[in-house]
């Protein structure tokens, strides 16, 4: 496996910069609701996207999926417009931050219901299997969702039907305000997944090489119709949603992940200037995307009426 660490570093920096720009827009009152930022999952998001082929693979994500959608290659301006409720967003502002949909980039959908995206990825896996595309369905979910019936049922179903599916658990240690240790009865998500018959892997979201390697093995297993599970330790650097009082996680973790990959790059002989240039370039791109999105008109009656005219009112 030949990793382009500089590219992954750049992508992780881009996600972080994008999210902090969104945070600034939250402060400015430009984000309609609450934004659940992907700060802390940048490395995991970049590594996962690197293991996938967006033309045949389909990913579903949780309410916290800005970074995942961007990592898969969703148009950052359209993502930003969607989050900001601007015309020209992915769904013209009908969907918003928790329902990003970019199947053209392999990002099938994120979800406002904790865990509900997981059976949807089983469907993508079923399509891949039925149509023999060679693709996989990938569900990304948190430690909170890991206790949802939808997730546990989907794990069993994937094994029973031999679906090409990967379950990716981002464990940031806390679901809203409740710790994973408190809520997870058995204490081991890996054991739980293995007991369903899933090929179970673990990875550290701060270690890009190990993370990529484990994700590569998990997806290879799924492509061979042995559904897989991988638990990736990640951070949640800015609370459940931006602006909420931080409850328990280490705020440095996500930043730490990016520092770790930078240290790895330096150890590999990439010079500090190249790292700095990559980071600055990513940040400029993020700033520009948000600025362009912000300049677009706000969604209103025209966009809603267009949808009603397509589907009609029921009665």
């Amino acid at each position: 496996m030949s990793l382009n660490l500089l590219k992954l570093f750049e992508k992780a920096c881009f996600i972080r910069a994008f999210e902090y720009e969104i945070a600034r827009q939250c402060d400015a009152g430009e984000v309609p609701g609450l934004a659940h930022l992907s700060t802390g999952t940048e490395i995991a998001d970049a590594a996962l996207a690197d293991a996938l082929n967006p033309t045949i693979d389909r990913v579903t994500g949780s309410h916290r999926s800005h970074g995942l959608a961007l990592a898969m290659g969703a148009d950052p301006i359209k993502v930003a417009k969607e989050i900001l409720g601007r015309v020209g967003g992915l769904s013209d502002g009908m969907a918003g931050t928790q329902h990003l949909i970019a199947p053209e980039s392999g990002f099938l959908t994120s979800n406002g219901i904790v865990g509900a995206q997981v059976p949807l990825a089983a469907g993508a896996a079923l399509t891949a299997k039925t149509m023999k595309t060679g693709g996989v369905g990938v569900a990304v979910f948190g430690d909170g969702a890991a206790n949802q019936g939808a997730v546990l049922e989907a794990m069993n179903l994937a094994v029973a039907l031999a679906l090409p599916m990967v379950f990716v658990l981002y464990n940031n240690g806390v679901a809203q305000t409740t710790s994973a240790a408190f809520a997870g009865g058995s204490g081991s998500f890996i054991q739980r997944a293995a007991s369903f018959g899933l090929n179970a892997f673990v990875a550290d979201g701060c270690d890009i090489r190990l993370c990529c390697d484990a994700l590569e093995r998990a997806t290879a297993s799924a492509r061979a119709f042995k559904p897989a599970f991988i638990e990736v330790g990640v951070g949640r650097d800015d609370g459940h949603y931006y602006g909420e009082q931080q409850t328990s996680t280490d705020a440095e973790n996500g930043g730490g992940a990016i520092r770790a990959i930078r240290a790895q790059l330096l150890a590999d002989g990439v010079d500090a200037l190249a790292c700095e240039q990559a980071k600055n370039g990513a940040e400029n791109l993020a700033h520009t995307a948000i600025a362009v999105a912000l300049a677009a008109p706000k969604v209103g009656r025209v966009e809603l009426d267009r949808w009603i005219s397509i589907t009609g009112a029921g009665v």
């Binding site: 389909r58 579903t60 199947p103 099938l108 959908t109 509900a116 997981v118 059976p119 949807l120 990825a121 089983a122 469907g123 993508a124 896996a125 079923l126 399509t127 891949a128 039925t130 149509m131 369905g137 019936g149 939808a150 049922e153 989907a154 069993n156 179903l157 029973a160 039907l161």
Partner: peptide
């Protein structure tokens, strides 16, 4: 023609995901 475990959430969800992706 696929028989499933008794897991309506999982298999109805799977059907939704399959419909989203071309079946």
């Amino acid at each position: 023609v696929i028989d499933t475990p008794i897991s309506e959430t999982a298999f109805v969800g799977m059907a939704v995901g399959a419909a989203m992706t071309g079946l």
